[in-house]
């Protein structure tokens, strides 16, 4: 058991080492959300009435942009399973005398940690742009970010376990991740969206992540926080179970 935990710790550490060595990738992954926030957040200010952030659009989209960073960061580290497969490292982990569950958990925890770190960096940038963050509430926000990240890393691992190569990756980004982001109400209030968009957004797990982030960061959400958190916990349980199952099934 002890040996399994050690293996889990080293899988986690591996993700962190890779994160600190890939500075250009981190900058690249933060660039798009930053532009969204810097350009949309400052120029759309005051164009309409917003239900949150006292009409300050920057503060309205900040939680949404953070959720976006978490989503992209987590799904990406999960999908890295494909890269591990292509570069052969996956085989090394698959034939080790450790349970696959330990490997996939270590990997997911590591991926989630790096996603939260990216979220915190983004939060720093938001503050630099003029958004205000309540420091006292930060621990709760970090815990929430960790929950969201772990759920989406697991989703990424699940996808990565079934995809054969990197070709499928663009497809996932364009047909799953981007729609998830746009439908989540990260950039606009869902209350102003047409009925059909709103309906679809309710099946988007990221909607609940954005709602919860908004609740804890700017004190407003259209959905009761118990529902957002409940859905996120269920989503986390589901993706973790599925990813563990699918990862266990890989036969290379």
């Amino acid at each position: 058991m002890n040996h399994e935990l050690t293996a889990l710790y080293f899988m986690w550490k591996r993700e962190l080492i890779r994160f600190t060595r890939s500075k250009s990738r981190v900058v690249g992954s933060l660039a798009m959300p930053f532009f969204f926030m810097a350009i949309l957040g400052t120029s759309m200010n005051g164009i309409g009435s917003l239900p949150a952030g006292d009409g300050n659009y920057l503060e309205f989209i900040m939680p949404g942009i953070l959720a976006m960073v978490l989503l992209f960061g987590s799904v990406f580290t999960g999908v890295i399973v494909i890269m591990d497969r292509q570069f052969g490292f996956l085989k090394e982990t698959l034939v080790a005398p450790v349970s696959r569950t330990c490997i996939v958990l270590g990997k997911s925890l590591g991926g989630a940690t790096t996603a939260v770190l990216q979220g915190l960096m983004m939060m720093g940038l938001a503050v630099a742009l003029g958004a205000s963050v309540d420091l006292a509430g930060l621990p709760v926000v970090i815990a929430l970010m960790a929950l969201i990240s772990m759920a989406f890393v697991a989703l990424g691992v699940a996808i990565g376990s079934v995809l054969e190569d990197m070709h499928g990756f663009q497809l996932i980004m364009n047909f799953l991740v981007m729609p998830m982001f746009f439908l989540s109400g990260a950039l606009f209030p869902l209350s102003s969206a047409p009925e059909i968009v709103r309906m679809v957004s309710y099946i988007d797990p990221l909607t609940y992540a954005v709602e919860a982030m908004r609740f804890f960061l700017v004190g407003h959400s259209t959905m009761p926080i118990e529902i957002s958190l409940g859905v996120l916990v269920l989503f986390f349980a589901a993706t973790t179970t599925i990813s563990t199952y699918l990862f266990n099934r890989i036969e290379s």
């Binding site: 591996r14 080492i17 060595r21 890939s22 052969g88 090394e92 005398p97």
Partner: peptide, 20 residues
């Protein structure tokens, strides 16, 4: 089947951990 982004030592350390 090495992790190209880790050092030689880190690759071996990870292996050692996995093999108990």
């Amino acid at each position: 089947s090495l992790d190209e982004e880790l050092t030689a030592y880190e690759n071996l350390e990870l292996h050692a951990a996995m093999y108990g």
